[in-house]
Amino acid sequence: MSQISPRLNLPFLQPSQAQKHVTHNEALRQLDLTVQLTVLSTNASNPPAVPEQGEIHALAAAPTGDWAGHGGELAAWLDNAWYFVTPNTGWRAWDLASNMVKVWDGTGWITPPVAAQNLSGVGVATSYDSTNRLSVRSPATLLSHDGGGHQLKINKASAGDTASLLFQSNWTGHAEMGLSGSTGFSIKVSPDGGSWTEALAFDPTTGIPSGAAVQASADDTTTGRLMRADYGYGPGNLLGSVSESSGTPTGAVIERGSTSDGDYVRFADGTQVCTATLNAVSCTTAEGALFSSNSESWTFPVAFSSAPMVSGSGGAMSRFMGFDESSSLHVDYQVLSAVSDAATQRPSAIAIGRWY
């Protein structure tokens, strides 16, 4: 029969053994050291100058002084001498220096691993609750990459639920962005946490924005709102094809063009101006006290919505133009002169009206 226990090396009392109390006390002392083990430090290398009775140190691999040659053992100060115990794999000790549980893994004292799956909650420098199962109290929170990029994912169960970031001041919400009740990304703001304004919302299919921060209509001039490209004008749509819908401009600001009948300019407000240099005519036909050419017709390069106002110049100082009633498509005219003039000259004309 062995004289020591298989795990803690406690000495057994033997039959007919003298001074059995010595063996028994030795076993008790070893139990006193190892049961509910507490150490002043782990990975200790230098013995303290004035140790106290019963203090225990978990030694490093190569301690010095009175501990030399006892690397990895437990050193206990008992009766003015160091008493050494070799730990077995799995022994646990409370480390007073770090206020943590340590475990001997066969080569060193380590912090035992903590199960990180299916925890009920985690609180970092604060407490978690049933809603905020992860709570962090800190000046900042860092989420860094592991060799490449990094994504922060916020998932929701269905389109009608919410997946968002809420920004608070003194626990009152003032801004929120994310997917709030739909799959379209939005940004909302609030002055008091109760009433909310959707400042920006993006259509998930087209990406086109809407919301209080965006111009709501072509005549919306609310201060500070973002101008929509189809409601405002810039280098890309200042010149082009003008158009309208129920009197509201829907195209460019200015449209310019020409045909064989002259030039025209259309404006977004409906104004249209047509100009032309007409066929050359002479003034030799007598009509009363004046001389005039035969009657001519000017077809406008583009149609007006109604008959425009027309004026012109006869092409010389002594000539001027006379017009019959015009239509939206053309106007008849004659070039008149105070004297007979056989020279052919080209008159010019201008018509001003509306294209809608």
Rank of each mutant, 00 (worst) to 15 (best):
H57P: 01
L278G: 02
T183P: 04
G240P: 09
L78Q: 01
S135H: 12
S245I: 06
A163Q: 15
I154M: 14
A140R: 10
A93E: 03
S282T: 10
S182A: 11
S328F: 04
L96V: 09
T86K: 14
Q53C: 00
L239D: 13
A289F: 02
P139K: 14
C283Q: 10
L239H: 13
F167Y: 09
L37T: 13
N155I: 06
S292V: 01
H70M: 06
N80P: 03
P301H: 12
G147K: 13
Q272K: 08
P347E: 08
A286F: 00
Q3R: 14
A116P: 06
D341G: 00
D146G: 13
T205H: 14
D230W: 02
Q19E: 07
Q19T: 05
S190P: 00
N80K: 15
P191I: 04
W82D: 03
F304Y: 15
R225D: 10
M100N: 09
N43F: 01
A115W: 05
G149Q: 04
G69T: 08
E55R: 02
P347V: 01
P47M: 11
G65I: 03
T206C: 13
E26G: 12
V214A: 06
V281M: 10
G270S: 11
R92V: 01
N279H: 13
L37V: 11
F202Q: 12
G257A: 01
A343V: 12
H174L: 15
T271L: 02
W355C: 11
T250H: 02
G90Y: 03
G184D: 04
A351G: 02
F167D: 09
N294Y: 08
G240W: 02
F267T: 11
V103C: 14
T107M: 07
Q334D: 13
N46Q: 10
V331N: 06
T248M: 09
L238R: 14
D32Q: 13
V331A: 10
A213D: 00
T222S: 12
D146Q: 14
F291R: 05
N43H: 07
